[in-house]
Design a protein around this nucleic acid. Structure first.
Lengths: 242, 242
DNA sequence: GCCTAAAATTGATCTGGATCAAATCGCCGG
DNA sequence: CCGGCGATTTGATCCAGATCAATTTTAGGC
């Protein structure tokens, strides 16, 4: 493991506290004592697939940076129906300032490594650094955009378009920015068919059928259930309802 | 029209600039010159139902407080399918800081009166007032929660549950906090059946059928297409999937 | 009040995705 | 290599909500 792991809150660079926490750039003005407090109180944690990241001793108290893995935000109905309302990928910052009255639960979708901070210390930092506050505001606005995009997908797209949209979303989270558009993209799905279904408002069977349909049409290859190659990103985009 | 109309950004009280703009409370620290600039540059605007609030001369340049009416945030697919991804009610603050790259369009769902501010002036205020920035962050987080709740509705509820959830949402936006739970609630729907359908990911016909079903079951009365009385809020809540 | 057009309801039918039910696949432990 | 179990795929049927097609209601304009 690296001894310094850079992660970002929006455009505010933050070095992972568990790996020698300190802040740079626009946050450089921060009190050295504050930073050392944050550093001392941070802990690196490994979570197995499926574990919940709330409240209990082995998990996250307040805030955390995701160092690797995927975290899903889940909402449920009393009868057991579930909907995944958000996904957080590798360098995202988790946790919300000013009380979490929301009823979402965060769960590790894959094995996850993260660096967690006590609520107290981070809240203090937020109040001292307008840039950090602004970074959090921008992250919130970006998540809001993402949620609204997904509302369109959930409310108005058919099964094929939903599955195609999902593949494009995952592909974009993997694809390096440098890579030219239109190239084949290869990746492992970070979720089971059930989780994909819960994300898309579908059933496992329908997800599976749409994937085979895309395979037969030559848009993707399913090397292994979890391992996908998108041979024709342009076609996939068309299938997603553009 | 009142000459001072109080509206709120989160817990930061702001007096509508068009009606003698100035700030109070936690924002009192603001520069008097800034405030007078904001006041001078603000304008009160009336929008007819259906008009879009972007870009053109008759509409909103940057930010605005809604004084009355309902604004809908709409996303569309190239083939014309539409999804309403958010509703903003009477004292909400509209507009997003730091560029709007998002593809939502805001439209007046009813006739709307609002007080609009030029982007420039408000951005300046935001940078000067951490409290205002925090207010905007909290508003963004609240909207994110709302969006996620709605994702559960869109992805996992059936038609009856969706329509019931919608009625409860509108009822709660009308109901005075003082009113005891369980009482009958009476209100006008601020949207057409088509808009309700676009909000719920359904068709007009299905919305209409679920409403008659609720009427026949004695949960609501439909005094007039747009005028609803919820006789049994508890039953309605059960119908909404709790 | 009467006329018109848009909005809403109601009815009849169709269909995409859910549901129920078996196969397969893939992986791990022995 | 052999079971065994969970994840996935595939097949057969069903049904909630879409679609198509009339009415009926409502809101303005004269």
């Amino acid at each position: 493991m690296n001894d310094r792991c850079e992660v970002r809150i929006s455009d505010v660079p933050v070095l992972c506290a568990a790996c020698q926490a300190r802040q740079r750039g626009v946050c450089a003005a921060l009190d050295a004592e504050q930073l050392s407090t944050l550093s001392r109180s941070s802990t690196k944690k490994r979570l197995d697939m499926g574990s919940e990241l709330i409240g209990d001793a082995t998990t996250v108290e307040g805030y955390a940076n995701i160092l690797s893995g995927v975290v899903k935000l889940v909402k449920g109905l009393p009868d057991g129906r579930e909907q995944i309302v958000g996904l957080q990928f590798a360098p995202d910052f988790l946790g919300r300032p000013f009380q979490a009255e929301s009823t979402v639960t965060a769960q590790a979708a894959t094995n996850v490594v993260l660096c967690s901070f006590p609520r107290r210390s981070v809240d203090a930092l937020i109040n001292q650094s307008p840039q950090l506050k602004q970074g959090l505001l921008q992250q919130a606005l970006r998540e809001l955009d993402g949620a609204r995009d997904w509302m369109l997908t959930l409310g108005r797209k058919n099964a094929l378009e939903k599955v195609s949209s999902y593949l494009l979303l995952i592909a974009s989270s993997v694809e390096s920015a440098a890579k030219p558009q239109g190239q084949a993209v290869e990746f492992d799905l970070p979720m089971t068919r059930q989780e994909i279904a819960d994300f898309l408002g579908l059933t496992i069977e329908t997800v599976s059928r749409q994937l085979t349909r895309l395979r037969i049409d030559g848009v993707i290859r399913i090397v292994q259930a979890r391992h996908i190659v998108v041979d024709n990103p342009a076609r996939l985009k068309i299938c997603s309802g553009a």
